[in-house]
Simulated scan of single mutants.
Amino acid sequence: MMLERGDHEVYHEPFSSIVVQGHTPVGERTATSHDELLKLLEERARERRVFVKETTEYDYLGSGGERIAEVGVHTFIVRDPRQVIPSHYAMNPDMTCTEVGYGHQVALARRAQVASGQRPLVIEAEDLLADTAGTVARYCRHLGIPYLASALSWQPGDQRVWSRTRQWHREAAHSSGFTSSHRTYAQTIANNEFLAACYRQHLPHYRVMCAWART
């Protein structure tokens, strides 16, 4: 959606790229640390609106990204871990429970609240699917950007910005709007004890984020 809007310079998972690759491009330059990345993003934001989409798979706050919570306006999207965990495991069977990311998400959200003095906006993925227009309109009001109904649909296709993680975005590449995924997985929290343990570990964090979304 943010790519479709066309009024933001979009960066796709640059902080995780620092963790995985040790570098990430920012315009014509390259950042090799979280702090350097933040400084380059701040420079870009002086001239244009910048949007960063990121996962909370890694502990950025504990790996040189202490300033992340202080830069920009933070918003979060959260989805039921009962569905997220089997999906993640299907893509990455070597995953650790920590990489599911809800704990990191709560830590970052709380740090952002302290830095800004107000609670960050949290969107539940289920609400985005049930009432796309209303949820996106609320999101835009929070950010102070125009609501563009035209950005709620797009032409299917791959996107250069997610080239590093293309295998994780196959469904997104075939999408033309916000739709539910009906995929099923052989390994779930019902039949895999490791996944069940991950679910139990992250459920309290998920509930924190849901409470924020509903207040």
Score class of each variant (00 low, 15 high):
residue 11 Y to H: 10
residue 73 V to A: 12
residue 114 V to Y: 02
residue 148 L to E: 11
residue 24 T to S: 13
residue 64 G to L: 06
residue 75 T to S: 14
residue 145 I to F: 04
residue 186 A to Y: 01
residue 137 A to V: 01
residue 189 I to Y: 08
residue 165 T to R: 13
residue 145 I to S: 01
residue 69 A to F: 05
residue 205 H to P: 00
residue 22 G to L: 07
residue 158 D to G: 05
residue 14 P to F: 11
residue 106 V to A: 06
residue 156 P to L: 13
residue 116 S to R: 15
residue 165 T to P: 00
residue 79 R to V: 05
residue 136 V to C: 03
residue 124 E to M: 14
residue 128 L to W: 09
residue 3 L to E: 13
residue 85 I to T: 08
residue 109 A to I: 01
residue 112 A to H: 02
residue 2 M to Y: 06
residue 184 T to S: 12
residue 98 T to Q: 12
residue 52 V to D: 04
residue 92 N to T: 12
residue 204 P to H: 10
residue 49 R to A: 10
residue 185 Y to D: 09
residue 23 H to V: 10
residue 47 E to I: 06
residue 53 K to V: 08
residue 84 V to Y: 03
residue 129 L to F: 01
residue 135 T to P: 10
residue 85 I to W: 07
residue 108 L to P: 02
residue 146 P to Q: 12
residue 105 Q to N: 04
residue 135 T to D: 06
residue 152 L to K: 08
residue 63 S to M: 09
residue 72 G to C: 12
residue 206 Y to L: 02
residue 74 H to Q: 10
residue 200 R to F: 03
residue 112 A to M: 03
residue 118 Q to R: 15
residue 94 D to Q: 10
residue 130 A to M: 05
residue 162 W to A: 07
residue 183 R to N: 06
residue 88 H to F: 15
residue 77 I to P: 02
residue 1 M to T: 07
residue 186 A to V: 08
residue 73 V to R: 15
residue 118 Q to N: 10
residue 181 S to H: 01
residue 143 L to G: 07
residue 99 E to Q: 15
residue 182 H to N: 13
residue 100 V to G: 05
residue 49 R to I: 00
residue 78 V to I: 13
residue 200 R to A: 15
residue 141 R to F: 01
residue 11 Y to D: 01
residue 16 S to I: 01
residue 43 E to F: 00
residue 25 P to C: 06
residue 58 Y to S: 03
residue 97 C to N: 06
residue 153 S to K: 12
residue 83 Q to E: 12
residue 86 P to R: 05
residue 75 T to P: 00
residue 203 L to D: 13
residue 200 R to V: 13
residue 79 R to N: 07
residue 197 A to C: 03
residue 206 Y to G: 02
residue 164 R to C: 00
residue 214 R to W: 08
residue 183 R to H: 08
residue 206 Y to W: 13
residue 117 G to I: 10
residue 1 M to E: 07
residue 209 M to I: 03
residue 78 V to T: 15
residue 215 T to F: 07
residue 160 R to F: 11
residue 45 A to Q: 09
residue 30 T to H: 04
residue 213 A to Q: 07
residue 212 W to A: 02
residue 103 G to N: 04
residue 101 G to I: 11
residue 95 M to C: 07
residue 24 T to Q: 07
residue 187 Q to A: 15
residue 17 S to Q: 14
residue 69 A to V: 06
